[in-house]
Design a protein around this nucleic acid. Structure first.
Lengths: 151, 151
DNA sequence: AGTCTGAGTTCGATATACGAACGCAGCTGT
DNA sequence: ACAGCTGCGTTCGTATATCGAACTCAGACT
């Protein structure tokens, strides 16, 4: 047994597993950074949105950035930190799963490509020797860390 | 604006975004397939677990598989479908984020490597021409599908 | 007959989510 | 100066979900 809070997926989901959190992050990735705009794009209730943004800032995934448009008062916007940007592969993986297994008639709403060569980009498993693995997971081997063995 | 249910991440999260769903799936990936075992490993309350398993089966991510141990009555276990296995990159991406940004003193609880070469495996963005992208996303270009433009 | 086990259901208490309404600060036009 | 607008939240009352513990049920074993 892997235990409860020992699981890394569980620790990640403590931050981004709340309802709306990942949708908020998706909008920030797309450049939507202001409270009302994020609310409109995701549909999250305002109170929940305020709570999620607070939690994401506290978790170090977003920062509240002060800015001022010409002739306007000081406002805030939310920007990704390094930890936030590191969530991109997870978000892309979920996006492509949605595109494939929950498609909409008009096709994928967002297309992502490699700026260098223009080819479509996907989240895949890659080993540190550079081999790109098959999606069926047959080339994969998983070892539990022995420090977590059941006593 | 990208709209609400138009977002592919949102459609994916309708299935796997409920509390416990991804943790249940992680256990099934690790070979934990029976109700009580999944419950013990995740800590999910039994009623919620029953509900999630039902939803995941209905969504085509798991199947309820009938089996019989020698001298025992018919039982059920939950197995991944193709759609379920396709969630592996998302799960690995979340796992490595948790390992990196929410580490535990003893180190990563699970190590994943390439069976062929033994090198560590990570979820990364790869284009269809085989280029592995940097994690900072600077090599990335995203286009909204014009069919979704605001009228 | 009685016990054990795996796989859920049921139940009352608590926590979260929901949408609508309200608050507030500071700019802008009059 | 003063009303109005806007961006960004907070408050409120209700609906829904989650929680842990207790209960059920079927079939095999003793």
């Amino acid at each position: 047994m892997t235990g409860r809070r020992v699981c890394s997926v569980a620790r990640a989901l403590e931050i981004v597993g709340e309802r709306w959190s990942l949708l908020v992050l998706r909008e920030v990735f797309l450049g939507v950074r202001r409270f009302d705009a994020i609310g409109a794009a995701t549909g999250a209730p305002r109170a929940v949105l305020a709570d999620r943004l607070r939690a994401l800032v506290e978790a170090g995934v977003l920062v509240r950035w002060e800015y001022r448009d010409a002739g306007a008062r000081t406002r805030h916007e939310y920007r990704l930190t390094g930890a936030g940007r590191a969530l991109r592969p997870a978000l892309v993986a979920l996006m492509q799963w949605g595109d494939r297994y929950r498609p909409v008639p008009a096709g994928p709403p967002l297309h992502i490509e490699h700026a260098g060569c223009g080819a479509a980009v996907r989240a895949r498993l890659v080993c540190d020797d550079g081999h790109v693995l098959d999606d069926d997971g047959r080339e994969l081997r998983a070892y539990p860390n022995s420090a977590f063995s059941v006593p």
